[in-house]
Design a protein around this nucleic acid. Structure first.
Lengths: 226, 226, 226, 226
DNA sequence: ACTCCCGGGACTGCCCGTTCAT
DNA sequence: ATGAACGGGCAGTCCCGGGAGT
């Protein structure tokens, strides 16, 4: 029992260390030496828990997958009105990205997908599905303008969030993620909700995404990039 | 002269071959062996034109950068109203992504950025700047709802396009890119333009993004990913 | 008692499994993982019985050694005329090779000897000695032509059998071993025994080595080897 | 040209070094580090000439194969009577084994065959074929007793030589190889040739195999092996 | 001016034989 | 007799120069 607990801890330690390296360097630029050094374990220990680098990467992805869909599940099973949930969910993902290296690594690994031949679970389908569910609920609640297709919007909301997060990553290491997320909803909401409910949802966005964060300025465009 | 022409052709050939490999495998999983095999040149030839793998990757990025900003420049220097230009520009980028391996490779390499220590030009700032320019023009033209900040919208439009392109890549190898891009504008436009002009811009989107494309269906969400 | 019996059974099981791997892959290409998988025991169990891979290999060799000298001992202590015994002994060895993986593994490990620094018992001296003993008896029985040196013949008979067995192994996986062994005696006997006794010994060979075996054809030489 | 000569020399150097290690340790106990150290070349040089350890081993085997069949070919194409050629051939092989590490390594690698999945050329078929050719000639020359089957004898002669060489290797590191080879023919000839020609062939054997060699004594059997 | 053969090392991912606490 | 961890070493192969050749 004690043994197994310790083994599990080691396993978790390795995943954490791997996540940090994968996040920084990507899959193939990360060497197992990096990981074992980070985790302060020996190669043998690593090999005991994961028989290949590939398997280790998959474990990281799986861990991220779990956490992400867990957050979505909480929302879907909750009783909050649909659109509020979607907004909160986007903020929740933002927080995961900012606080959890495993999530960041998982996202990066998923995007580098081409490297893997083995099909790894990609979270995008799940996110779109969850969002779709919530937006359907919102439509029943009359929180969505008529003539909008919940499925099309769901796909786009997920893609949009993905882009916001990535560009924020590239241009500011995600320092301005919350602010950019708020901008995203500012632009989106008027097209999504009936005018009379706009103030309400603006409030929801404000409560989720504007918790007195630093780095809210958009990047200075006058600086050339090279 | 003949020699130099031939040399230039070889250089271009190598860049093409490199782009194809970089696109598929990413920077560090691509070996120079892959590239020389693809291009049917010897290692020596490659080494003559590019003194390192790093430099070769930079050349690919630079080539993509050139093509992308060239497209933007055409729009900025054109006389077409601002918002139309932004829409057309997004379609133009979509086409580049679908037809030009160098562009796809450049995008991927830019995203993998962490791998490089050398600063490579990132195109996002340029795109945001160009978009901002165009949207300011649109505002003067009264094509934008009042109270909208062109800068915030520009940032978001670029990020949004990035996300659309990436998620389309992940879920359908970009087969449905045009359709998803049209969906994006469908969601965005109502929040951006005065109601009376909405039909007009819907038409612009339709003319750019709906050229009878296959693969327009959104992915089947009922299929689990693993 | 029960415990010890079980322990002994485990030990034997491991030796069997090890023999099968050693026979197929040789000493150093065989991994302990192979063996523990084959034997369905844990690494720990293996290390309880044998403190090193080396020792395990030695145990296999020892087991083979035992069985081989046991057969020889039976003959030496028996009362059958000398040359008959030698012939029967060769057939007995052939059967051991065909039926007992431990014997095959032991032979292979002995030949790879260079790998070991520790001196392992080699059975060749014993076999030569036993044969020598039996042939001396045959000489006293006037079954050997005059002027033959029993020692020289013994050495050669053992070497000859070794070669027959090995070439049969290489060219037919030992499928034609009995037939080739009969051929060997066919060639040897005329030089060894007085002419008048030749028919008798031919009969002995026939009774030992021609039990209606398949695969008796010599290999097709017209087929090139590559 | 100069370059190519240098390259060829390097290649040969590597094969020599590999042969020495393979001979001593066998295929899988030999590490590439051993070989590059022996040859004083870098791994890069080795990798340029041979893309895998397997391929290097095959090159060694091939080199040995060449030399062995070359010797056989000389005999087959010569005009000497058949049986004399066979005897001389056996002596020639003995000399190759004693003087040429590549031959010794090739033999060892061929025997360890099980390790390789790729079919490597085995020389045994060729040797049997050549011997068969020569013995058929001998039969026509009335140097063979009637009723003997040249094919059966050929197979056996090759196997017998193999065994002699191996047991000599095991028991004396081949120090007594010539002497044991002479013993072999001493035992074999009476059964092979007509009595009246026996003295002649005894002379042939003597001229080939008794060049004043050390280590001619048979091993001391009284010493136990462990 | 340009191409390429040949070689140089430094890693990488893998996996092996072993031990220690339980 | 087990599960977990230990290090070291394996084969492979990568990215890169230097010098001859065209």
């Amino acid at each position: 029992m004690t043994k197994q607990a310790r083994a599990l801890a080691t396993r978790e330690l390795i995943i954490q260390a791997a996540a940090q390296s994968f996040e920084r360097f990507g899959y193939s630029s990360t060497s197992l030496s990096d990981i074992v050094a980070q985790a302060s374990v020996t190669r043998g220990a690593l090999y005991f828990h994961f028989t290949s680098k590939q398997e280790l990467a998959s474990a990281v992805i799986e861990a991220q997958h779990e956490r992400s869909v867990a957050a979505a599940k909480v929302m879907v099973e909750g009783s909050e009105p649909g659109l509020e949930s979607v907004i909160r969910l986007s903020a929740e993902f933002a927080e995961q990205l900012l606080t959890d290296p495993v999530v960041r690594a998982g996202i990066r690994l998923t995007l580098e997908n081409g490297t893997f031949e083995a099909p790894v679970p990609d979270p995008y389908r799940e996110w779109i599905r969850a969002t779709s569910e919530l937006l359907t609920r919102a439509a029943k609640n009359n929180d969505l303008r008529g003539n909008l297709d919940p499925e099309a919007i769901s796909w786009y909301v997920v893609a949009s969030f993905t882009g916001v997060q990535m560009v924020s990553h590239i241009l500011s290491q995600r320092a301005d993620l919350y602010a950019r997320l708020a901008d995203m909803w500012d632009v989106l909401l008027p097209g999504l909700v009936p005018s009379r409910k706009l103030p309400h949802f603006r409030g929801v966005v404000a409560s989720c995404c504007r918790d007195g964060l630093p780095g809210a300025d958009r990047p200075d465009l006058s600086a050339t990039s090279d």
